[in-house]
């Protein structure tokens, strides 16, 4: 299988598990797409849907809920690009202490280290707490994956994975689609404790 076919397989497998694929992106178009999408989405859904909606508790509900995007600190290189995109749309860009937002954020943007084609899986080093939270507490997780980082199988990645996992405190995530459950009547439901949506931006090399 050549690399083009691998990319194809990765796309197909990731879509099968309800991930959304955005192919042939530059970093800038990827971020723009993400921010625009965040603007459109309904606000953070981890609040209790059966209680009054967030932002409506004070002042008779006039104030709009401010949306938040989590960008972990180790992604500082993206901040200069992302910051103006967010502020022009009234979105708050948060770059640290995601624990303070653990009830939920609207979007988390992170790089992915590898893609695994045969299962449509992302491999993401999540050693930092904010990396873990950005990929978990956000309604939408946007993963930036350089196409060249797609490999055929997890076994083929064994050496690289062992390197990632070697250091004390290492926390490595395989992420395959958004969080899901079939615990009630075996009916598939997307978005349990993790993201409701997973968007994978395939970056051109």
């Amino acid at each position: 299988m050549d690399h083009h076919q691998l990319i194809q397989q990765f796309k197909e497998k990731a879509q099968l598990v309800s991930a959304t694929i955005h192919p042939e992106m530059t970093l800038e178009t990827a971020l723009t797409t993400a921010v625009k999408y965040c603007q459109k989405k309904s606000s953070c859904q981890t609040s209790r849907p059966w209680e009054s909606p967030p932002g409506h508790q004070d002042n008779g509900g006039a104030r709009e809920h401010v949306k938040t995007i989590a960008l972990p600190e180790n992604h500082a290189s993206l901040e200069t690009l992302l910051s103006p995109m967010c502020s022009s749309r009234g979105i708050e860009l948060v770059t640290k202490n995601f624990r303070n937002h653990a009830r939920g954020m609207d979007m988390g943007i992170t790089f992915a280290d590898y893609g695994i084609a045969d299962t449509g899986t992302l491999v993401i080093g999540c050693d930092g707490e904010d990396m873990r939270l950005a990929t978990m507490i956000s309604d939408i997780h946007v993963a930036l994956l350089p196409q060249s980082r797609i490999r055929s199988t997890a076994l083929e990645l064994t050496d690289e994975l062992e390197d990632m996992m070697a250091a004390p405190g290492a926390y490595t995530a395989f992420i395959t689609g958004p969080s899901r459950t079939a615990d009630i009547e075996r009916v598939l439901a997307i978005g349990v404790h993790g993201p409701l949506e997973l968007h994978i931006m395939l970056l051109k090399d």
Partner: peptide, 19 residues
């Protein structure tokens, strides 16, 4: 469950960062 892989496979090597 007939899944090719579950949504998450998590690999933890010792105590990780906890702010």
């Amino acid at each position: 469950t007939g899944q090719q892989l579950t949504s998450y496979v998590t690999w933890i090597t010792g105590p990780s960062q906890c702010t």
